[in-house]
Write a protein that binds this DNA or RNA. Structure first.
Length: 279
DNA sequence: ATTAGGGTTAGTG
DNA sequence: CACTAACCCTAAT
């Protein structure tokens, strides 16, 4: 009972970030066991780390906090490469195809236990409700609950389940949330759920809580070095991204200039009375 | 043994 | 009451 809820401290969060920078996402146990991160994370389980990272990711994803516009959509790195950072941008499919998008078939009889299929079932109900209600501004939780209750038998705590589901679907970019209302996303509806709005894969700020007094012991020094390496790796990754962006912008500039040139030429000719056809 | 992801609950506004 | 963050459960690997 003396265990209400242990809020994550900033130090723990930083340790987690640093741990991910060093070991990669998905290596929760490694991070947790790492003697140095363990100094901060000893009271957290690998599952706690995973959950926390998920929370941080979601917060950075949706319309959460304005500050954190980072989009760490981490994909497990290949087990063959112990190197920390080696993620190819555009290689992770954060939104997988949902097989129940249009399936609204559900017999009341098929209500068993809350197995893995429950989620899809609820998803289907939600899609059914939203696609029937067709409210351009979205439908509120209550409206959705009402709709579903009329058509299906639902458990007592359904509202809770539903809000949880809705939240998840929003996080998965399958639904849009405006105000307190939810609606289907166009790209999901059209089946154009292409690889599209894949946010850039930038790691969360790798700033690490360095101890100012480095090198007290050999171990400390080693740890400090590890931190440095992790940070450097992160920086190089971010730098690489920046270079790509710069190249893209410069290309755009080139194109714009060419366009301007063309416009000038046309203007020139027009002012000489020529008739210019533009394709 | 661990991880990923769905579900539950305490805490807050 | 709605929402979020921490915590729990379990299938899958």
């Amino acid at each position: 009972m003396g265990n209400p809820k242990q809020k994550w401290t900033a130090e723990e969060e930083e340790a987690l970030r640093a741990g991910i920078a060093k070991h990669g996402t998905g290596k929760w146990k490694n991070i947790q066991k790492d003697p140095e991160f363990n100094r901060f994370l000893y009271s957290r389980s690998n599952i706690d780390l995973k959950d926390k990272w998920r929370n941080m990711s979601v917060a950075a994803n949706g319309q959460g906090p304005r500050e954190k516009s980072r989009t760490p959509k981490p994909k497990t790195d290949s087990p063959a490469t112990p190197l920390a950072i080696q993620q190819a941008p555009g290689s992770s499919p954060p939104v997988e195809v949902d097989p129940v998008t249009t399936d609204v078939h559900m017999d009341d009889a098929s209500k068993c236990l809350l197995d893995g299929k429950t989620a899809s079932k609820y998803n289907a109900m939600i899609y059914e409700a939203l696609s029937t209600l067709k409210d351009p501004n979205g439908s509120s939780t209550s409206e959705i609950v009402c709709f579903i209750e009329k058509r299906h038998e639902v458990p007592q705590n359904f509202r809770r389940l539903l809000t949880s589901r809705l939240r998840r679907l929003v996080a998965q970019e399958k639904l849009e949330k405006v105000q307190n209302c939810y609606r289907l996303r166009m790209d999901v509806l059209n089946g154009t759920k292409g690889p599209s709005p894949k946010p850039k894969e930038i790691w969360p700020r790798p700033s690490i809580p360095f101890n100012s007094h480095l090198g007290e012991t050999l171990e400390d020094a080693a740890v400090a070095a590890a931190y440095k390496v992790a940070e450097a790796e992160n920086k190089s990754f971010v730098a690489a991204e920046a270079v790509k962006e710069a190249e893209r912008v410069s290309k755009m500039a080139e194109e714009a200039e060419a366009f301007l040139h063309l416009a000038k030429e046309i203007y020139e000719r027009c002012s000489h009375g020529e008739v210019v056809m533009v394709a």
